[in-house]
C-alpha cells in the first residue's frame, strides 16, 4: 500500500488529480466553515453584483452569494457521486460475479437485461427514470445508480471470466472450498483492480450526469445549491451576469477533470500488463 501511494505521487498527472479530488472533498466537508454565508441567504440589496471583496464570485438574481453556493454545491455533487456510484458498483459487482461465475442461464438472464439498459444513452435513461420516480435528490441518485449498473456488471463479468481460468481457482475447488467462499475470497479480490478504476471514472460521470439532470430541472430541486441548478438559473442572465454561469461551470470542469486524471493514473498503476 505504501508502495502504491508512492507510485501515485511519482506519477505527476495522478498527483494533480489526487490533489484536486482531495480539495473538492475538503471543500465539501468544511463547507460551513469555508463559505462566508449560508447558501440560501438572500442579500436583497446586492442582487446580481459582480465579484467583489464582499462577494468573491458575485451574487445571483436573489442576492445569494455564488461562492458559498459553489462551495455547498461540492457537497451535493460528491454526495450524488458517491451514493449513485455506490449503488451502481454494488449491483454491478453482485450481478457481474454471479453472471461470470455461474455462467449458463443466470449469465444469459442478467446480461440480456443489462443489454436492454445499454441500448439507451445514459442521460436519456436517467431522464426517463427520474421522470417516472419524480425529480428529487434521492431519485437522481437512484437513477444514476441504475444507469451505471450495466457498465459495472459487464466489466466485472469479463474480469471474472479471466480470473476463473486461473489454476488457483481450480486448486481452491480441489481443496474443498465451497463456491461462495471461492467467489468471496478468491474471485472478488482478484477483480478489484478494474473495479476501483471504474469507480473513479464513474464518479466523474455521475457528477456530470447529476449536473445535467439538475440543469434540465429533473435533478436536485432549487433552492438546493447544485452546480447544475445554478447553471439552469444563470441561463436567463448570461449576458448581464456572466459570473453566475462561469463559476459553477469552472467548478464542474475542474472536478471532472481531476477525477478523470486520478482514474487514468489508477488504471495505469493497477493494470497488471503495465507492471514491471
Amino acid at each position: 500500500m505504501r508502495d502504491f501511494t508512492r507510485k501515485i505521487i511519482e506519477d505527476k498527472v495522478g498527483l494533480v488529480g489526487l490533489i484536486g479530488v482531495l480539495l473538492v472533498v475538503l471543500l465539501a466537508i468544511f463547507a460551513p466553515i469555508i463559505a462566508p454565508y449560508a447558501p440560501d441567504k438572500m442579500h436583497t440589496l446586492h442582487t446580481m453584483e459582480g465579484p467583489s471583496s464582499q462577494f468573491l464570485f458575485g451574487t445571483d438574481e436573489f442576492g445569494r452569494d455564488i461562492f458559498s453556493r459553489v462551495v455547498y454545491g461540492a457537497q451535493v455533487s460528491l454526495q450524488v457521486g458517491l451514493i449513485a456510484v455506490g449503488i451502481g458498483a454494488f449491483f454491478g459487482l453482485l450481478f457481474g460475479l454471479l453472471a461470470g461465475f455461474f455462467q449458463g442461464k443466470i449469465d444469459q438472464f442478467i446480461m440480456r437485461i443489462m443489454d436492454i439498459f445499454f441500448a439507451f444513452p445514459d442521460i436519456l435513461l436517467a431522464l426517463t427514470i427520474v421522470a417516472v420516480l419524480g425529480p428529487s435528490l434521492t431519485n437522481t441518485m437512484i437513477a444514476i445508480g441504475i444507469v451505471f449498473t450495466p457498465v459495472f456488471t459487464r466489466l466485472i463479468r469479463s474480469a471474472v471470466l479471466t480470473v476463473k481460468e486461473n489454476e488457483y481457482i481450480t486448486n481452491a475447488e480441489a481443496v474443498g472450498v465451497s463456491n461462495t467462499k471461492i467467489i468471496v475470497k478468491h474471485i472478488a479480490p482478484n477483480v478489484m483492480a478494474p473495479f476501483i478504476v471504474q469507480i473513479t471514472l464513474a464518479l466523474s460521470g455521475a457528477i456530470l450526469t447529476e449536473a445535467g439532470l439538475s440543469f434540465l430541472g429533473l435533478g436536485v430541486q432549487p433552492p438546493d445549491p447544485s452546480w447544475g441548478v445554478m447553471l439552469n438559473e444563470s441561463r436567463s442572465y448570461m449576458e448581464i451576469a456572466p459570473w453566475m454561469m462561469a463559476f459553477p461551470v469552472t467548478a464542474i470542469i475542474i472536478t471532472i477533470f481531476c477525477f478523470n486524471l486520478l482514474g487514468d493514473s489508477l488504471r495505469d498503476l493497477l493494470d497488471p500488463k503495465l507492471k514491471q
Binding site: E167, Y168, T170, N190
Partner: peptide
C-alpha cells in the same frame, strides 16, 4: 488431493 501443472498460476497472487 491434487497438484497442478502450472505452479505459476496455481496459487492465488
Amino acid at each position: 488431493a491434487m497438484i497442478f501443472q502450472e505452479p505459476m498460476t496455481a496459487l492465488d497472487p
